[in-house]
Amino acid sequence: MRRALAGCLFVAIGCAPIGVFLLLRRMSLMGDAMSHAILPGAAVGFLLAGMSVSVLSLGGLAAGLAVALAAGVTTRTTILREDASLAAFYLISLALGVVLVSLKGSNVDLLHVLFGTVLALDDSALLLLAGIAALTLPLLILIRRPLVIECFDPSFLRVVSGCGPVVHMVFLALVVLNLVGGFQALGTLMAVGLMMLPATTARLWARTLGGMIGVSLLTAFAASYLGLLFSYHATLPSGPAIVLTAGMLLILSLFLAPHRGLFSRYWAHSHLEG
């Protein structure tokens, strides 16, 4: 149980800030697409080496990066926008993944990849998750400024610096890396939940980027801890329990968040003079 909690916290450290940037870049559904995109790589790994964590991870990483690269190049060289090219490539990737999984293995194996095994994390998996979190935070800090500019005023970044495409690809690589890490603990689909639900909650509570990242991290930590407890006492799968908890926190925030929640719309506020 303690391993499970540590694993989830490592996933949260990487996923929560990335989710904030995805949300602000209006790419909230991109994590979902990428989580499907890594499936064929994980399936190839599964076909080659069975349930080997490292091989599954490498396969997932390769497939995710390939889809991100293909979608990125397509977006920048054709009329297709990012959502369209990403949707196209992830669907191809997902179909390929399902075909590959069906070649060898049962539905149980597929569920394992999709929903994870947080209660069975071993030392190597924990080390991998810690490593991904340790890599993600410094890299995000390094590319934070161009990421912000690209969100706010993309043409400004293109004018003052040629680093935009590189930063974009580094960011996409971080998304893939964290999803691959996440599927160790939560499964590919559930990892996106820990990426996007805390970020969405944070948007309701915080006004600044730093505040959003802080609230997002706290929400992800709380969802991990409470979700694991919920999963243990109700004997439910851990991944969905954690994501459901994050979902409950979001729904509460939709009602309670000051200035932006539903209650605040109908609550009489005193106003300032200037």
């Binding site: 602000l24 912000v148 005023d153 993309p154 600044t208 980027l209």
Partner: peptide, 10 residues
């Protein structure tokens, strides 16, 4: 119109 005016930045 080309700028993201809702972005949380000061």
């Amino acid at each position: 119109a080309e700028l993201e005016r809702d972005f949380p930045i000061t």
